[in-house]
């Protein structure tokens, strides 16, 4: 092997390591939903290329209201689904859409767009 090939190979391995680390290894911090005066655990979620925040921590047994605001036109994100709680909502651009449900089981659940390109995690404690 010539030095340049060794160099390219090492560079490639480094790139792969970087991809693995960047997309799969890093744990994302969660955001805890605050309890509002109406008794709901409420949180605003921005939908733009992903969900911000995309890891949401809620308490079991208290109703949750997630207010989604979609500020992009890419059709990918026009729906949000929380399959484990059988909830879904259409998100018209620029409008706040509330999704309410009752977290009656603990664990980690996903919420995502219809095609699964954008995803977030819902942790019920």
């Amino acid at each position: 092997m010539t030095p340049d090939k060794i160099f390219v190979t090492l560079l490639g391995l480094a790139a792969i390591a970087a991809i693995v680390w960047f997309f799969w290894m890093v744990k994302k911090p969660g955001v805890k939903a605050a309890v509002s005066s109406s008794g709901y655990q409420e949180l605003m979620v921005l939908v733009k290329g992903g969900y911000t925040p995309d890891v949401i921590v809620v308490e079991k047994g208290k109703p949750v209201r997630l207010n989604f605001v979609r500020s992009e036109s890419a059709s990918c994100s026009e729906m949000v689904l929380i399959p484990d709680f059988q909830k879904s909502a259409r998100l018209p651009e620029g409008e706040t859409v509330s999704v309410e449900f009752m977290p009656d089981k603990t664990g980690e659940f996903e919420f995502q767009c219809q095609m699964g390109m954008l995803r977030g995690k819902l942790i019920v404690e």
């Binding site: 390219v8 190979t9 490639g12 391995l13 693995v20 997309f23 699964g116």
Partner: peptide, 25 residues
Amino acid sequence: VDQVSTYFTPAVMILAVIGFVVWYD
């Protein structure tokens, strides 16, 4: 499918890197 697609795109990027290295070497 969802499980697959979580890994799909980064996996394609890794394959592209491997492809480049193998062809270069």
